[in-house]
Nucleic acid binder design. Structure first.
Lengths: 344, 344
DNA sequence: TTGTAAGCGTTATCAC
DNA sequence: GTGATAACGCTTACAA
């Protein structure tokens, strides 16, 4: 590989002058600059970014750790951060945390040990206190899920309000026996939504029935089992609130054989094309990614400045048909927009 | 940050010995090793990976450039490579190429200038000759789409056979007027599938009708327009082959108002839950990712060795209902498996 | 305006 | 078995 020394030799200047020219330093004689530029071009100089990065002491890279990269929600976040990074001459390293909570710390610390410009994380464990040792060196921003046992920036959706909205929507459609479906209330996202669900029931003076809470719906088998348990309950539910998109997608097959009205937290591709089309709480992953990425850049650029730590983004309800399954006299509205799969 | 010199001072040895201990070199007296290990632990030594990487001259990172990270097909590839990378102590940098062909080279070269261990790419342009300058330093593996104007490893699905299979399947269901839907035959993936489609027609002595080829179906609007054009044709089609998952997803809304039988190249989440469930050619993005990632590792580990450049992976047909829309007397088979959205 | 020297943290070389 | 020294390619500090 041809380095600055080679260019310097060809242009008959010192390596430092080549550095100056390459980095646009103004204190170079036009004459010299021209010679150096010619040499740069002739040798097709490409800087050794490993050396530059080493010298700078920090890598122009934003790390992203999410539970599941294939989930379009997290995929969109990564994509949005990626675009922002590219615009700022940086790149992104992406890690899939999977679902083994015990591995989170190892994976994340291996990311952090790379002297990144910043880290964006949607954690899967209940304790990110291990981050405390890193945050002074590397800005960390939480997305979708708030930090546990460590102070850090976060951009999360309004889980409570969204769940309240979704549950209330079912109540307004005349339902009183409304089930809650989730994977695990272990993660704050789900527990917040659970709280929102209960708050909506309470606000409408509907008694909460623990028998209507079904967890473990992380795949199709689990969702079918959960649904079976629910319909076996004495005083079976007439409606169901699914607390996240993954559950909802897992639920879809079982739903086909059911007459439950449904609202769900989180839109997903094709949700509007199912029968019935699913009424959902819509989030904005692209915005989340943009805000989180921008925060990393801001923190890295102005280390001193103060920022709002906790940021809650509003959500909205997209009404489709699934909320009125047992409410058939109402006109179906036309399908509302859904996140489309598209590039760019 | 505490470095090897600090550890060395504490353990009263040289930095080199610390390096030896830390890297498990056997030529260290047990006595010394113990002292050093204690010091390492006491100072909580974390190596400066920037320095290590700089010294090594190459970054333990696999680059991935795909058209669209949110597309579950590419997302799965990235995820599979990521797992492999983690298992080998590496990470992945991911870039979304978007759909601006002109930017591909800039984006990819900015990746390559980082001295990666290797690059996995699903290109969007027609010319990757710019890679020639890099391949001697960095192994490059193409996925999903073969290289253009540059020799390189590739792992692609059997586009021709898959399209042939899908088209033939419609023919076997009694269709003679079969349309081809795509975004652009510009990319080899689609043109290969187009060829497979035509070959199937020819094999069954069905005349090819150019009026039944509809392109530009890259989003819902485009797909609806394409479908409208097709149904306006004299001797309108009774069936349609959609040449990629993106088109198919875009087509779904329009399909609801149509009686076309459909087969499609590429499975996607919820394809089995639509009405009708879409019969698809199934690919295996996880396998693609594993093979491509392994090839990068192999090439990096054994630079001399020779490998098979062109690798074509078999595809299979998953029969659902959409292929028999105008063939209603046949029994619908039960839904076949689909790539589920799941972590881990 | 330009060049020299030093150093970023790690590891390879080669003495001891 | 252990350590001094140099080197990776670049940039900062300082000198000329």
């Amino acid at each position: 590989m041809t380095g600055m020394r080679d260019v310097a030799a060809l242009a008959k200047v010192s390596a430092k002058t080549v550095s100056r020219v390459f980095n646009g330093d103004s204190h170079v004689a036009p004459e010299t600059r021209k010679r150096v530029e010619a040499a740069l071009r002739e040798l097709n100089y490409v800087p050794n970014s490993l050396a530059t990065t080493f010298r700078a002491g920090r890598s122009p890279v934003i790390g992203i750790a999410v539970p599941d990269l294939v989930d379009p929600f997290f995929g969109s976040i990564a994509k949005a951060v990626g675009r922002l990074a590219t615009e700022n001459g940086m790149s992104i390293v992406v890690t899939d945390l999977g679902d083994d909570q015990a591995r989170e710390q190892i994976i994340v610390e291996s990311l952090l040990s790379q002297s990144l410009t910043g880290l964006i994380i949607a954690p899967i464990s209940h304790d990110q206190s291990y981050l405390a040792a890193w945050t002074s060196r590397t800005p960390v921003v939480f997305v979708d899920r708030p930090p546990n046992r460590v102070p850090a920036d976060s951009f999360v959706e309004d889980d409570h309000a969204g769940a309240h909205l979704a549950t209330e929507h079912l109540i307004e459609h005349g339902h009183q026996r409304i089930a809650f479906l989730g994977d695990t209330t272990d993660i704050p996202t789900t527990s917040n939504r659970y709280a929102g669900y209960r708050a909506a029931l309470a606000a409408h003076h509907i008694d909460f029935d623990p028998a209507l809470v079904a967890l473990g719906a992380k795949d199709r088998v689990g969702a079918a089992a959960a649904l079976a348990r629910l319909t076996a309950v004495h005083g079976r539910p007439t409606a169901l609130f699914s607390s996240n998109a993954r559950c909802t997608m897992a639920l879809v097959p079982a739903l086909a054989h059911s007459d439950l009205a449904v609202t769900a937290f989180g839109d997903f591709p094709m949700a509007d094309m199912l029968s019935p089309a699913i009424t959902v709480i819509d989030q904005d992953p692209i915005l989340v990614g943009q805000l989180a990425g921008q925060r990393i850049i801001d923190r890295a650029t102005h280390p001193g400045r103060r920022y709002r730590r906790r940021n809650v983004l509003p959500v909205s309800l997209i009404e489709r048909q699934s909320c009125r399954v047992t409410d058939p006299d109402t006109q179906p509205s036309r399908p509302a927009p859904v996140h489309e799969r598209k590039a760019g």
